[in-house]
């Protein structure tokens, strides 16, 4: 069985659970809990969101969404092996937690492990173009610091088309 993994990481509310839901052909396996702090939504993921895309009888792509907060870093270990791709989601509208992003990039080290990495900005449908571009710039500065050459694109995790365009890009980068 040729089984590859796509790990999806990012801060609370970035859209990890949503994108797994959008892409997965199976009903995704989620581990949500009611949030005790105001995060803009009722529930938050405290474990792994799991979904799957079957490509053929013996080929499948597993989708693994893991929380980005450092205290859940023990979950990062579960997904940091033989990755087909690493997707980092960043929510537009709030200043990203760069300390945390720094830790995620240091842990996954996509440039060392030669893992294809894409950074996607979410919640930017109604955003001001210039400040979205500025956010992209902030992110690229962080990526450069880690010697990671990765595209920074805008996506809507609710949209199948938008989510699929990510897979197209991952596939092109992995070829």
């Amino acid at each position: 069985m040729n089984y590859q993994k796509l790990a999806i990481i990012g801060e609370v509310g970035a859209g990890k659970t949503q994108i797994v839901r959008t892409l997965s052909e199976i009903s995704p396996f989620g581990t949500e809990a009611k949030s005790t702090i105001d995060i803009g939504k009722k529930n938050t993921t405290v474990g792994i969101d799991y979904g799957r895309i079957t490509l053929s009888d013996d080929m499948a792509l597993g989708l693994y969404g893991v929380p980005g907060q450092e205290r859940y870093s023990f979950l990062w270990e579960f997904v940091n092996q033989s990755l087909w791709g690493l997707l980092i989601l960043i929510k537009y509208g709030e200043t990203p937690d760069y300390e945390n992003l720094d830790k995620m990039l240091a842990f996954f080290s996509p440039e060392k492990s030669q893992t294809t990495c894409i950074v996607a900005i979410t919640h930017c449908e109604d955003g001001d173009k210039l400040s979205i571009a500025a956010l992209g710039q902030e992110i690229r500065a962080m990526l450069m610091h880690h010697n990671v050459v990765a595209p920074v694109i805008n996506i809507d995790p609710r949209s199948k088309e938008s989510a699929k365009s990510l897979l197209v890009l991952f596939n092109a980068l992995n070829n």
Binding site: Y98, S131, A133, A134, Q137, E138, A141
Partner: peptide
């Protein structure tokens, strides 16, 4: 790092 650049913009 240009932290907060998007807010500055």
């Amino acid at each position: 790092l240009p932290i907060g650049l998007s807010d500055i913009v």
